[in-house]
Simulated scan of single mutants.
Amino acid sequence: MFSFFKKKKIIAHIKLNGVIGNAGKFKQGIDFAGQEEIIEKAFSLKKAKAVAITINSPGGSPVQSHLIYKFIRAQAKKNKIKVIVFAEDVAASGGYLIACAGDEIYANSSSIIGSIGVIYSSFGFTELIKKIGVERRVHTAGKNKSSLDPFQEEKSEDIERLKNIQLDLHKDFIKVVEESRGSKLKKDGIELFSGEFWAGSKSKELGLIDGLGNANEILKEKFGEDVIIKKFEKSKGWLSKKLSSSSNQIDQLANILEERSIWQRYGF
Rank of each mutant, 00 (worst) to 15 (best):
Ser156Arg: 11
Leu192Phe: 12
Phe197Tyr: 15
Phe173Tyr: 13
Ile174Trp: 03
Asp158Gly: 01
Glu160Pro: 00
Phe173Asn: 04
Val176Leu: 06
Gln166Tyr: 08
Ile174Pro: 05
Lys186Leu: 05
Lys155Pro: 10
Ile190Trp: 09
Phe197Asp: 05
Ser156Val: 11
Phe173Gln: 06
Phe173Thr: 02
Arg181His: 04
Glu196His: 13
Glu191Arg: 13
Arg181Cys: 03
Lys186Ala: 03
Glu178Cys: 04
Lys184Met: 09
Val176Arg: 08
Asp188Trp: 06
Leu185Lys: 01
Asp188Arg: 14
Ser180Ala: 15
Gly195Lys: 02
Leu167Ser: 08
Ile159Glu: 14
Leu162Gly: 00
Gly189Asp: 04
Asn164Val: 01
Phe197Pro: 03
Glu154Ile: 11
Asp172Val: 01
Phe173Glu: 02
Phe193Pro: 00
Ile159Ser: 10
Ile174Tyr: 01
Ile190His: 09
His170Gly: 02
Trp198Ile: 06
Arg161Asn: 01
Gly200Cys: 07
Ile174Glu: 15
Gln166Arg: 06
Val177His: 06
Phe193Ile: 03
Lys155Met: 09
Lys163Gly: 01
Lys171Asp: 14
Asp168Pro: 03
Glu154Gln: 13
Val177Ile: 15
Asp188Gly: 03
Leu162Trp: 03
Asp172Tyr: 05
Asp172Ser: 10
Lys175Glu: 11
Glu154Leu: 11
Val176Gly: 02
Leu162Val: 04
Asp158Leu: 00
Gln166Phe: 13
Ser183Val: 12
Glu179Ala: 15
Glu191Thr: 06
Leu167Tyr: 15
Lys186Phe: 13
Trp198Pro: 06
Glu157Pro: 00
Glu153Arg: 10
Glu157Leu: 05
Asp168Tyr: 15
Gly200Pro: 09
Asn164Arg: 12
Val176Lys: 03
Lys187His: 06
Glu178Tyr: 01
Lys186Ile: 12
Asp168Val: 01
Gly189Ala: 09
Lys184Gln: 10
Leu185Ser: 10
Ile165Trp: 07
Ala199Phe: 06
Lys155Asn: 10
Asp172Asn: 12
Leu192Ala: 09
Ile190Asp: 00
Asp158Gln: 12
Glu196Cys: 00
Glu154Trp: 03
Trp198Ala: 10
Ser183Glu: 14
Ser180Pro: 11
Glu196Gly: 12
Gly189Lys: 07
Arg161Ser: 14
